[in-house]
């Protein structure tokens, strides 16, 4: 069993005009998706990432605000899961509600084996 990191890009919920009921419906999709992964014993951890942050760069250790070139490139959160194969990890990623938006992406990366 290998581990995979799923990275979510594109701030899919930036539409600020959603009503509370719509926001709850939106959230419940995520809860259901993650709940399903967890119930199959595949979930390791998952966290959202703030939009703000700092970048430490190069030998000078220069610190800049950042890191974000473009909104849709921003990593909004991650999920670390277990899967037998990359295909299985992709199947997990396919259920992610972020993919209801055309610009949403889930990057699936196997954790390097030591």
């Amino acid at each position: 069993m290998a581990e995979f990191l799923l990275l979510f890009r594109h701030d899919d919920i930036r539409n600020a005009n959603l009503s509370p009921e719509q926001m709850q419906a939106q959230m419940q999709k995520w809860v259901a998706w993650m709940g399903d992964i967890a119930s199959r014993g595949k979930m390791l951890s998952s966290q959202p990432l703030e939009r703000t942050g700092k970048v430490v760069r190069g030998t000078k250790k220069a610190i800049t605000d950042g890191p974000f070139a473009e909104g849709k490139e921003v990593i909004g959160g991650y999920l670390l899961c277990k899967a037998d194969t990359i295909e299985e990890a992709i199947a997990i990623a396919e259920g992610c509600p972020i993919l209801e938006h055309d610009a949403g992406t889930v990057e699936v990366r196997p954790i390097g084996r030591m």
Binding site: I13, A16, L18, P20, M23, Q24, Q26, M27, W30, V31, M34, S46, Q47, P48, G76, G77, L79
Partner: peptide
């Protein structure tokens, strides 16, 4: 509520 949506998803 919007903040809840963003954080509670996880």
């Amino acid at each position: 509520i919007y903040q809840a949506l963003k954080e509670w998803r996880f």
